[in-house]
Nucleic acid binder design. Sequence first.
DNA 1: TCCCATCATCAAACCGGTTTGGGAATAACA
DNA 2: TGTTATTCCCAAACCGGTTTGATGATGGGA
Lengths: 350, 350
Amino acid sequence: MTTLRELASHLGLSPATVSRALNGFPEVGEATRRRVIEASERLHYKANSSARRLATGKSGMVGMIFRASQNLLVDPHFVDFLAGLSVGLAARDLDLIIHTAAHGAPGAPYKRFVASGSVDGMIVSAPALEDERIATLTQRDFPFVVHGRTAEHVPYAFYDIDNDGAFAAATALLADLGHRRISLVNGPAGLAFAAQRAAAFRRVTAARGLAIPARFVSHDEMSEDIGYRRAAALLGGAAGPPPTAFVCSSTLLALGVMRAAGERGLQVGADVSIIAHDDVLPHLRSEHFSPALTVTRSPIREAGTALADMLVARIGGAAPATLQRIVPVDLVVRESTGPVPGTGGEGWSR
Amino acid sequence: MTTLRELASHLGLSPATVSRALNGFPEVGEATRRRVIEASERLHYKANSSARRLATGKSGMVGMIFRASQNLLVDPHFVDFLAGLSVGLAARDLDLIIHTAAHGAPGAPYKRFVASGSVDGMIVSAPALEDERIATLTQRDFPFVVHGRTAEHVPYAFYDIDNDGAFAAATALLADLGHRRISLVNGPAGLAFAAQRAAAFRRVTAARGLAIPARFVSHDEMSEDIGYRRAAALLGGAAGPPPTAFVCSSTLLALGVMRAAGERGLQVGADVSIIAHDDVLPHLRSEHFSPALTVTRSPIREAGTALADMLVARIGGAAPATLQRIVPVDLVVRESTGPVPGTGGEGWSR
DNA sequence: TCCCATCATCAAACCGGTTTGGGAATAACA
DNA sequence: TGTTATTCCCAAACCGGTTTGATGATGGGA
């Protein structure tokens, strides 16, 4: 509760000198500085952050906004990203403001943060293919970084994994094992990463001459439940021959697909193959699934810390074009993928 | 970027009038108010939040601090709580600042937030049995709410589940089924909820005359991995006869215990019984485990929204003693619990 | 017609820091 | 000793809102 002025008059100094002493400016005497610091601690002085912000124009915070409708906060991928981000920002002495936009208008909360000057930068997560937020922020020349990439042409700072490479490799692996009926259980339609993954999947299957019926490709929330329902519907075979392999956009989806396969008595890795993208959620380890899951792997936490660094650079004035990273994805072959059943996999059944 | 003064001079009014017009004060004429609002929208005026805070003394934000060392943000229970909290706060037009304290000193970040006036209230999560944060905040008479309860006697606002009732019921259920060698796989030692659960477990087992060796009770992080390791060590039987039943502090732990049991060829619900507390994480549904898990159930998301309401009330001046809630916990019996094997469960083997 | 409410508005102070532009010592140099 | 350069500190302005106290303009009642 002590103010700078109180502290100053207590010391018989001017507020200006005390301010400089505490902020490490060179033009105050060493003896004076020590006296000031000692007194500030004794009186529990702490600069009022609102006043400082008003004077300096910096807030020391960065913002992030979720749409409550999308329930993104519940998504474990998302929160793990948040964890990395928070740690990375804390290391730079920045705080993170999170705001859940309850109502429809997605633009309003951005105004709230950007126009009112309450944050120094923004983080945009889970962008759509053409994302309004990116357009708005670019237009106002406000510092921001994106987790993911959109189809737009404006240069902005982003961190993304090589979704195309990962899903091309995953699809090719299955095709090489002889699978011709492959299903893609993907993330929500409209999100950029899901579109990139679907494009890679379609490109590779088309190149191999595989006919993929529309019902084999689904876009939805990435939960165990959805994985189960999609796989159960397809494996039931009511609408046509079931797939022999699944490519999943997350390990949670794969878990559901495995449950559906298990219920039908299908052996994963023999009767049906499953591969998934693994964001390496610490409490969900694909190597412990039974059977151990073949995955394309890229830790989502690293995205958080990397984006924190990028945002700091961006706030510091770095050009967006210099802050773009696409990280490669590892393909880890384990036990959930195998040769297509009923063909020459073992060399005799053909 | 337009300021209040600019807007005012543009309108030929004083800043005072414009401020009142925008903030809905009754002493400005209706015609003037409309004129002001119209102009403010046309010029994209948005009050600078730092300036407003400085003038009003309110920040419109509440804070929450994690210790990075504890890795709480990675804990899915925790983040789901965060989700509920965020939604609850957004409904009250509050933002949440989250700060990860990288280094050891737990007091420092509190100073940072409280003494500098950057937040109007604080949320304390995962309290220890005697929590320093609660002591500090109480002493400064700063508004805060706690998720959980400590052993302290100071009256503060909290929301907690009936850990004692839940774990007494769970333990009694197993004892009633004839189990005499029961293991408790608990959360981290030192945290209040874990202590409450352990106390209930010990009370009920003692009342039933069950001898529980020290190795049957473990305190650690609540991950699948830890659950697996604890159960594997006990079921190995190297240190003595293995337990016939497990009480787990989370469904993640139970998942690990199930994996350990499965690896040894034990049938869950017959050879070994498992019961867990279920915080109802949307992506981890205990009714879908195989077998479906018997649980004590209480959605952790509700804690978030309830605490948001409490904190708003507390900031508004409500007395802490009026803001204390302990919610009951449901016992849901499913397939993972059954009579102890090798006794009279089936009527013939004794 | 005069007086008193009521309404609508304004000038100025204030919140608590930071920053600019000097100015009075002291030190360095001729 | 006189001048110039440093060193150290201060008074005042400023950031952009909100809030107090006062004032001019209108309208109703006597």
